[in-house]
Design a protein around this nucleic acid. Structure first.
Lengths: 173, 173
DNA sequence: TTCTATCCCATGCTATCCCATATCCACAGG
DNA sequence: CCTGTGGATATGGGATAGCATGGGATAGAA
C-alpha cells in the first residue's frame, strides 16, 4: 500500500522528520468533536509553519467541488496578488464581486497549542462536513472533504478511493 | 439559535491570537441597536489595528453597490495615490466627481473600548442599513451590507448567498 | 432644561485555554 | 521477525476569558 499508513495517527504521511516540508501531501482522517474542533494533522501544521512562519491557515470553499481548501498565509496572499494582476486596470464591479466571494467566504483561523481549529457551521455546511474530515495534500494547498462525499463523487482515481476506504476502515467506520 | 450558532456572536472568526492578520476575511452578521451602535467584529478590529495601529476606521459608500466600504487609515490614505494612477492623464470631470464622492461622503470613526461605532443616519441611508449589518472581508478593505439587499443583488456567488442565508438563519432572521 | 452622544456596567453565550487520557508510531531489544 | 517501551499525537471535558449586546448614567450642545 504505497502511501497508506505512515503518519502518526491518521494516515499517509510525509515522514515525521525535522526536514522542512514545503508541500502538502498525504491523506489523514480526523474527527470533528462536539465543539466542532478539528485537529490539523501534525505534518500539515509543520508545512504551514515552514511556508508561512505562522500558526494560521485560511479555509475557503473550493470552486468546483463541495469541499474546503486550506492555504497557508503565504500562499493565500499570493492568490490575492494574482487577482490584482488579473483585474489590473479593471475598476468595474467584476473585481469587487470576485473579491467579495473570495474573501467573504474565506476564514482565517489560528490553531491552538494542541493543533486544533474550530470549524464554523458555515464552513461545515460548505464542505458537507459532519463528524469526520479527510485532509488531502494538494501541493501548495490541501483539501478538506467529507470522506463519504468524496467516495461518491464521480471521477476520482480508484487508488485514491482505496486509500480513503482503508483509512475509514482503520478507524472503524 | 439551536443548530447553527457560532462565533463569539455573529460569524466567521480568524482566531484571537496576537498574530498579525494582514487581510480582511470572513462574514459576520451583527446587530444595529436603537442607538445606531454597531459592534465591529473582533477579528476585523484586530486587522485594523494590525495594519494601521489605530482604533479607527473610515466608512464610505461603495462605487458599484449600495453598500458601505470600510478601510483602515493606512489603506484609506493610499487610496488617494491610487486615484492619481487610475485617472492619470484624465483632466475631465470624472476625477473630481470620483474624489468628491469618495472623500466627501467618507466618515472617519473611532470605535470605543467595547469595539462599537455609531452609524450616522447618512451612512445608514447610503448602505440601506436598518437593524442588521453583514460585514464581509474583501482583502484590504471590508464591506457593510444590508443582508437582505445583498441577497437580492444580482451577480453574487451562490455559495456566498448560501453563507448569508445561513448567518441570517443562525440569528433567527 | 431637553435632546443627543459617549461612557460605564451588566449579562448571556461560547470560543479558547488548560489539563487529562487514549492511541498510535518509531525504535530498540530479545 | 516479533514485541515492549517511550514519546508524540489526537481527542475529551471542565474552567476561563473574550465578545456582542442591552440599559442606564453622565456630559455637552441647542
Amino acid at each position: 500500500m504505497p502511501g497508506v499508513s505512515r503518519g502518526r495517527r491518521g494516515g499517509a504521511g510525509q515522514g515525521s522528520g525535522r526536514f522542512r516540508v514545503r508541500h502538502y501531501s498525504g491523506a489523514y482522517l480526523n474527527a470533528v468533536d462536539g465543539k466542532s474542533r478539528l485537529s490539523v494533522p501534525a505534518p500539515i501544521r509543520e508545512t504551514i509553519e515552514s511556508r508561512s512562519g505562522q500558526k494560521q491557515l485560511v479555509l475557503a470553499p473550493a470552486e468546483h467541488n463541495d469541499c474546503l481548501v486550506g492555504y497557508d498565509l503565504t500562499r493565500f496572499e499570493s492568490l490575492q496578488a494574482e487577482i490584482g494582476v488579473r483585474f489590473a486596470g479593471d475598476y468595474g464591479p467584476a473585481r469587487s464581486d470576485f473579491a467579495r466571494a473570495m474573501f467573504g467566504m474565506a476564514e482565517t483561523l489560528r490553531y491552538d497549542d494542541t493543533g486544533r481549529i474550530i470549524l464554523s457551521p458555515i464552513l461545515k455546511d460548505l464542505g458537507r462536513i459532519e463528524t469526520t474530515v479527510l485532509l488531502l495534500g494538494g501541493g501548495d494547498y490541501f483539501e478538506l472533504w467529507s470522506p463519504e462525499h468524496l467516495l461518491e463523487t464521480p471521477g476520482q482515481d480508484p487508488r485514491l478511493l482505496r486509500t480513503v476506504r482503508a483509512l475509514c476502515a482503520a478507524r472503524g467506520r
